[in-house]
C-alpha cells in the first residue's frame, strides 16, 4: 500500500477538517494533491502533531480534526497517545502511516531501502499501543480498500479513533512545497475561523479505480 494512494482516497473528505500533518514525505504528498489553507504541515517538533491536533479538537469541538502522523513521530511521543486517550476528543481522527522507517529524516533511500528502521519493523504494534493507551478504536490496515473504509468510517464517526496504515517506505516524487512555513502558519488559523459545514453535506470521495468491483457492502453503499 502506498501512502499517496491512501491520501488520495481521503483527500476530498478533508475539505472542512483541520488537518495537521508531520514533516517530510506526508506533508509533501498531501501538498502535491493540492494545498488547502486548512492543512497545517508541522515541519519540525516530531511527535507533536497529535498534540497540536488535540489542542484544536478541544478548542473547536464542532470541527473534525485529522492528524496525519508517522511511526517515527508517534514513537517520539508515545505519552501523547495516553493524553489523547484520556481527553477522548470525539472529533479527532489519528491516522498513522507506518513505513517502519525514519524515511524523511534520512532513514530511507530511493527504492525503498531501509537503513534506519523504527521499532515497528521488529514488532512494535502502534494500534495495539493506542488501544492499550485507551483509544476506543484503533486498528491496523494493510490494503487500500481497508484503509479507505476505516478512514471514512472514522471521519464520519463520533469517537476518537486511530488507524495505523502499513505503507511502503517510498520517497515522495518531490519534496517541493511552494508554501512557506510562516505563510502556512498564518493561513491555517484563518481557515479555522470559518465555521465547519455539516459533514453530511460534503461530497463523498471519488473511488479509486479498481480492476474488480468491490463486494464489501459498506463500500458499495458509499458509491451509490
Amino acid at each position: 500500500m502506498k501512502r499517496i494512494d491512501c491520501l488520495k482516497a481521503i483527500y476530498p473528505e478533508l475539505e472542512d477538517c483541520a488537518v495537521v500533518t508531520i514533516m517530510g514525505a506526508v506533508a509533501a504528498e498531501l501538498y502535491s494533491l493540492g494545498h488547502r489553507a486548512n492543512f497545517f504541515y508541522l515541519e519540525h517538533a516530531m511527535g507533536l502533531a497529535s498534540s497540536i491536533g488535540l489542542g484544536i479538537a478541544l478548542a473547536q469541538p464542532g470541527r473534525k480534526v485529522v492528524v496525519i502522523d508517522g511511526d517515527g513521530s508517534v514513537l517520539m511521543n508515545l505519552g501523547g497517545l495516553t493524553t489523547l486517550a484520556r481527553s477522548r476528543p470525539k472529533n479527532l481522527v489519528h491516522l498513522i502511516f507506518d513505513n517502519e522507517t525514519l524515511l524523511s529524516v534520512g532513514g530511507g533511500a530511493p527504492g525503498g531501502y531501509k537503513w534506519f528502521t523504527t521499532a515497528t519493523s521488529t514488532g512494535t504494534d502502534l494500534a495495539g499501543i493506542a488501544r492499550a493507551a485507551g483509544f476506543p478504536k484503533a486498528q491496523t490496515v494493510r490494503e487500500l480498500d481497508d484503509f479507505e473504509e476505516a478512514a471514512l468510517d472514522a471521519l464520519d464517526g463520533g469517537e476518537l479513533s486511530c488507524i495505523v496504515a502499513k505503507v511502503e517506505a517510498e520517497m515522495p516524487k518531490s519534496f517541493l512545497m511552494d508554501v512557506h512555513m510562516l505563510e502556512n502558519r498564518f493561513e491555517f488559523p484563518r481557515a479555522l475561523q470559518q465555521p465547519p459545514r455539516d459533514r453530511a453535506a460534503l461530497r463523498r470521495p471519488t473511488r479509486i479505480a479498481k480492476e474488480q468491483p468491490t463486494t464489501i457492502p459498506a463500500l458499495k453503499s458509499r458509491e451509490e
Partner: peptide
C-alpha cells in the same frame, strides 16, 4: 489537560491558538 510530559503542552497550546 493532564499531560504525560510537558512538551505535549506546547503542541496543545499551539493547536488551541490556531483554533482561537
Amino acid at each position: 489537560v493532564r499531560l504525560a510530559k510537558e512538551e505535549e503542552g506546547v503542541g496543545i497550546s499551539a493547536g488551541a491558538h490556531f483554533a482561537g
